[in-house]
């Protein structure tokens, strides 16, 4: 009975305050979409880290014909230098850091290059000679890059030692920056949402002060008086959170899944399923935001 009564009150309140409720829904929708976007970017970064860190780690590029660095002044790497490097890689001092390594010849490099830039005219102007051969090292511990770099940089025939993670780190920095911006926008929007919810609840409490006054007098409990108002805000916020979750899901399904993953087949994008993991977090965040802000508002404007 009391439940039915509370539900009736909520329905009445939502109907009476429809435009405000819609604005609460929209504001929570937008703010939680930004929160979710930041979450998606982080998921994507983790995904890419997991995907790439296994594959690319440290590459020792050997001098080629076109190499211009000082260490390559003596010309392209000789067979002897290359054999020395291989021996060094297999020595006990180095193997403790290395899982395994492969040698990528200039022909291999050219083949990878043409595959990667299949649609680009640059392929026609590149020959295998111009591309450096390299040792590709899979590190035991990627953080020990410095050790490898120190050992090999000064070896004859080595052009440069590159930690390919650093190339990825730049990308991740950009993505982290983007998610930070998303979080900041989300923060501002959440402040808007909180204030708007507070205002809405205040209006709702004001327009029903007759009822609540009578409820107080006849001894209705605090819960019965306040719950309809709190649930009003919570319901609006949860609807907004659901919309935000739906939007994020749609983005990951149609934009990442159908569009971007075709453009960049090599890249592992997060799946719509992973995005949905964010949904409960958004719903809880939305509900608690609304719940807390309406509770605080009621404490001030609805004496019990």
């Amino acid at each position: 009975m009391r439940l039915a009564f509370i539900l009736g009150e909520i329905g009445g309140g939502l109907r009476r305050n429809l435009s405000m409720v819609v604005s609460v829904i929209l504001v929570t929708f937008v703010s939680l979409t930004f929160v979710g976007a930041a979450g998606m970017l982080q998921l994507q970064i983790n995904q890419m880290k997991g995907f790439w860190y296994d594959k690319v780690q440290v590459a020792i590029f050997l001098c080629s014909d076109g190499a211009t660095s000082a260490s390559c002044a003596t010309g392209p790497v000789t067979e002897e230098q290359q054999a020395n490097l291989q021996t060094l890689l297999e020595s006990a001092a180095v193997t403790q850091y290395v899982n395994d390594f492969t040698f990528e010849s200039q022909d291999d490099a050219y083949r990878h290059f043409t595959e990667q830039f299949a649609n680009s005219p640059i392929v026609d102007s590149v020959t295998p000679d111009q591309l450096p051969s390299s040792f590709r090292i899979n590190m035991e511990d990627p953080e020990k890059y410095q050790v490898i770099s120190e050992i090999f940089s000064s070896q004859p025939g080595v052009e440069t030692v590159i930690d390919q993670r650093q190339l990825l780190e730049q990308l991740f920095t950009v993505m982290n920056g983007a998610s930070l911006v998303a979080v900041l926008v989300a923060g501002v929007m959440i402040v808007c949402a909180i204030l708007l919810i507070a205002t809405t609840i205040r209006l709702s409490a004001f327009s029903r002060r007759r009822e609540t006054g009578i409820m107080r007098l006849v001894g209705a409990s605090k819960t019965v008086i306040q719950l309809p108002f709190i649930l009003e805000g919570v319901i609006a916020a949860v609807v907004g959170a659901a919309l935000a979750s739906g939007t994020l899901w749609a983005v990951s399904k149609f934009f990442l899944g159908d569009y971007l993953s075709q453009q960049y087949p090599d890249t592992a994008f997060i799946s719509p399923g992973q995005t949905l993991l964010l949904a409960p977090a958004l719903l809880i965040l939305g509900a608690s935001l609304a719940g807390i802000s309406s509770l605080l508002t009621l404490r001030k404007y609805l004496k019990v």
């Binding site: 009975m1 009391r2 009564f5 009822e211 009578i214 409820m215 006849v218 001894g219 209705a220 409990s221 019965v224 008086i225």
Partner: peptide, 11 residues
């Protein structure tokens, strides 16, 4: 009835 509803009296 309102006075009874809000204190949880049955229908």
């Amino acid at each position: 009835a309102f006075a009874m509803q809000v204190i949880g009296k049955s229908r």
